[in-house]
Amino acid sequence: MINELITPGADRQLKNHTSLGQIVRNTFTMAYRGLLKIRRTPEQLFDVTLQPIIFTLMFTYIFGGAISGNVHNYLPVIIPGILVQTVITTSIVTGVQLREDMDKGVFDRFKSLPIARIAPLSGALLADTVRYTIATLLTFSMGYIMGYRPEGGIGHVALAGILVIVCSWAISWIFAFFGVIARTASSVQGISMLVLFPLTFLSNAYVPVNTMPSWLQWFVNVNPVSHLVTAVRDLANTGTIGNDLLISLMGAAAIVVIFIPLTVRAYMHRT
């Protein structure tokens, strides 16, 4: 193959931009790479496996009696809450792993190939939706085992799961941005937790909002995580679609519109 004559550089027809089709193709190839890596190192799925199981058990039995009188009545409240919290938390790993990955030599090759510049990022983030899917399935399964029977039916539960996965994918662009600008993987973890902790706990995920002081209620009500939790509860528990779903999707879209360009720009500027 080496001995085949190559086309001289001056005789080649070349373009100085990537087409949308190429961006999509490159992204899927990069996502394939991400999946292969997950398959090679399944131990990195520990967190998405254990967290839904432990959190669901723990929070349900700790808060169940206090908040809803008993565990069974608490399940329709807590399962959507835990689902949102767990899956969004999982998306931090995306940023951390991106930071680790970018320091490896293979990223130099990606940068020297005539591919869409965004593909190494978008592919990694797309592959990570597999992690969110695992976390979603496990959380619902744990709920089911503990007696949760969502009245919205399987179709709406599936929709709720997809909504959470899509929103987490959008949020993962924030952590991808941290991943690109941070110096070390552990600092990505640190910053991301700092952002995410108040967002997920200062929400309606675990307790009814009307039990909180009024200044806190204000924050909890504008917190996009609360809207996502409510949207999931509506879908799973009653099979209804309300404003909260719309607000969640708009929030996700806003994150994507702001953070994809920011992240790609930071990625290209980094040497």
Partner: peptide, 23 residues
Amino acid sequence: REPHIVRQLIGVTGQYASVDETL
């Protein structure tokens, strides 16, 4: 000005292997 074209004309073997260790 034309980095994308240049990338179509070159192959780069860096000082440190730029391949994926886990694969």
